[in-house]
Measured scan of single mutants.
Amino acid sequence: MDETGKELVLALYDYQEKSPREVTMKKGDILTLLNSTNKDWWKVEVNDRQGFVPAAYVKKL
């Protein structure tokens, strides 16, 4: 969790967005987890953008 109590995830792999609903991340990025109710796609925030990334590409910290 960060200082505001939000849950964080670590990008395990690079991911290039394939639609406007997704976000690009690089391996090693720390992202804010917004929603993990879907087992396949998690909603995150990175670089002031919100979108989805494959759940298998990130790990909760």
Rank of each mutant, 00 (worst) to 15 (best):
V23L: 14
E7S: 11
S19L: 08
T4D: 13
K26V: 09
K43W: 13
V9R: 02
T32N: 07
D40R: 11
D40G: 08
W42E: 01
A56S: 13
K43F: 15
E45S: 10
L33I: 05
A55V: 06
V58E: 02
V44H: 00
M1Y: 13
Y15Q: 00
K39T: 11
L12I: 11
A11G: 03
K39W: 07
N38D: 15
L10M: 14
T37V: 09
E17I: 06
L31C: 10
Y13E: 10
S36W: 08
P20N: 09
S36R: 07
V23F: 11
R49M: 07
L10C: 09
L33T: 01
V46M: 15
K27I: 06
W42S: 02
S36T: 09
G28L: 02
D29L: 05
G28R: 02
T37A: 12
K59R: 12
K59P: 02
E17S: 15
Y15A: 00
K6H: 12
V44A: 01
A55S: 13
S36E: 14
A11Q: 00
W41P: 00
Y15S: 01
L12P: 00
K60I: 12
A11L: 02
I30A: 02
Q50C: 11
T37Q: 12
V46N: 15
Y15G: 00
R49L: 07
Y57H: 08
K60H: 08
K6C: 14
K18Y: 05
K18R: 13
N35I: 07
V44C: 04
P54I: 02
L33Q: 00
K6N: 10
K60L: 14
L12E: 04
L12S: 03
R49T: 06
V23K: 01
I30W: 05
G28Y: 05
G5E: 13
E7D: 10
A55L: 02
M1S: 13
V44P: 00
E45Q: 14
I30H: 05
E45I: 09
N47P: 11
T4I: 13
S19R: 09
K26M: 09
E22M: 05
V44T: 01
W42C: 03
P20Y: 08
L8A: 06
W41N: 01
L12D: 03
E45T: 07
K18P: 04
F52Y: 15
E3I: 14
T4M: 12
K6Q: 10
T32V: 15
L8H: 09
M25D: 00
L8K: 11
W41F: 06
V58C: 15
I30G: 01
G51S: 01
L8G: 03
E22Y: 05
Q16M: 13
Q50T: 11
Y13K: 13
V44G: 01
Y57P: 02
L31E: 00
D2H: 14
E7K: 09
A11I: 02
G5N: 13
K26H: 10
V53G: 00
Q50I: 13
K39E: 11
K27V: 07
L61V: 11
K39S: 11
T24Q: 04
Q50D: 06
A56I: 09
R49N: 06
V53K: 00
K26W: 10
V46Y: 13
R21Y: 12
V46C: 11
Y57C: 13
T24P: 05
V9E: 00
V23N: 03
I30N: 02
Q16Y: 15
N38A: 08
M1D: 13
S19P: 04
K6S: 09
S19I: 04
N35L: 09
M1Q: 14
L34E: 02
D14C: 05
G5V: 15
V58G: 01
T32Q: 11
E7A: 10
A56N: 13
K43Y: 15
K39P: 15
